[in-house]
Design a binder for these strands. Structure first.
Lengths: 194, 194
DNA sequence: ACTTAAATTCAACACATGACGAATTATGCC
DNA sequence: GGCATAATTCGTCATGTGTTGAATTTAAGT
């Protein structure tokens, strides 16, 4: 009755399968990490046959790379952070960081990046590359700061992401934006203030 | 020739197999995370048949729990940190944190905890439990500080552990103890100084 | 209208894994 | 010496995985 016995073959009309798969992959990679997010589960979440995943994206590694491609342009975000009075840099960084992570479209992707950074060498390389290239090189040059200071600020933010969004430890998980700004901005300002 | 065709049956003399398995499990869970560290690989690393692992520890989850049992007594460590002048608390915390992580016997176990905290719900619960019970409750009471401040300090340390020991991002991975103390102690002091 | 290309499913392979029961050898106790 | 018990290995089962090839249906191009 209710089972529409899905026959093979192309469906009429425009298809969103490719995007559905990408979205499902972001959610499942974010929730379960690289290994436990099976292609079959991703396909099921996308309402699609597993072979279709392979048809569009090839091997699982490629799917992962496509799903985890950096969701924001680091240069633009960094520009927003750097622009403005130097003594409010910590606050701008905190607010930008929170704004990005609180976006419900982006969060699973970021959680996936953090999760898989500790799981697969590929994921680790992704985060390493981002911190080294986008943050260390660009921000270091723009601000004229020692790289160790920048990694310290990065560590603070990675740690907050872990506790708040991955592990969901209270009271950090439920703190308001203003509480976090009051708490973190002075620290980041101290590392990056010059 | 070289293959001593290991026959089944008990070996003469005292056996260290149980401890060998635990050590191998710590190393492999630390290096590869929960899923990719297979029982077979752990057994191979310990020079032992996979079934022996099962004989001693039961299911894989139990092995993991046994291997990741917290390697230091939180109460004792916290005591060391809290004892002393309040305005040097940040420095004592930094030095204690580094001393523990730099111990080559303990590090794989801690890396394993961090790694699996992002991988398995069980691992997440382990870290959550540690931060909530050992840190938040005990240190919060002892120091009379808001819990949000303590999670901020925890986040800073978790972040440093990620960058320095898990991802090995430079220059944080190679910084000396003194450099890290100079960098981190003021931050932690600010969160916990009161 | 005809043909090529794209989307979609089904079925299956090869492989690795966790788990388990059975068999074998040593130790320790009486 | 005999007997329970612990340590150790082998073989095997069921399951889940990534991947692939073939078959089917629609869309697009001419």
């Amino acid at each position: 009755m209710t089972a529409p016995t899905r026959r093979p073959g192309r469906r009429p009309g425009r298809s969103s399968s490719r995007d559905d798969i990408l979205a499902a992959a972001r959610v499942l990679f974010g929730e379960r990490g690289y290994d436990k997010a099976s292609i079959r589960a991703i396909a099921r979440e996308a309402g699609v046959d597993p072979a279709l995943v392979h048809h569009f994206f090839g091997a699982k590694e490629d799917l992962f790379a496509a799903a985890m491609e950096f969701p924001v342009d680091p240069a633009m975000v960094l520009g927003q952070v750097v622009d403005g009075p130097r003594d409010e840099l910590g606050e701008r960084l905190t607010r930008t960081f929170l704004r990005i992570w609180e976006d419900p479209r982006l969060r699973p992707q970021f959680v996936g990046i953090i999760r898989s950074a500790t799981t697969t060498e590929q994921g680790a390389e992704l985060l390493r590359e981002f911190i080294s290239t986008a943050l260390l090189a660009r921000a270091g040059d723009a601000l004229g700061l020692p790289r160790l200071n920048i990694t310290a600020a990065a560590a603070q933010m990675v740690g907050v992401a872990m506790l708040r969004y991955v592990l969901e430890i209270e009271p950090m998980a439920s703190a308001t934006e203003e509480e976090l700004v009051a708490l973190l901005a002075p620290t980041l300002q101290c590392y990056l203030g010059g």
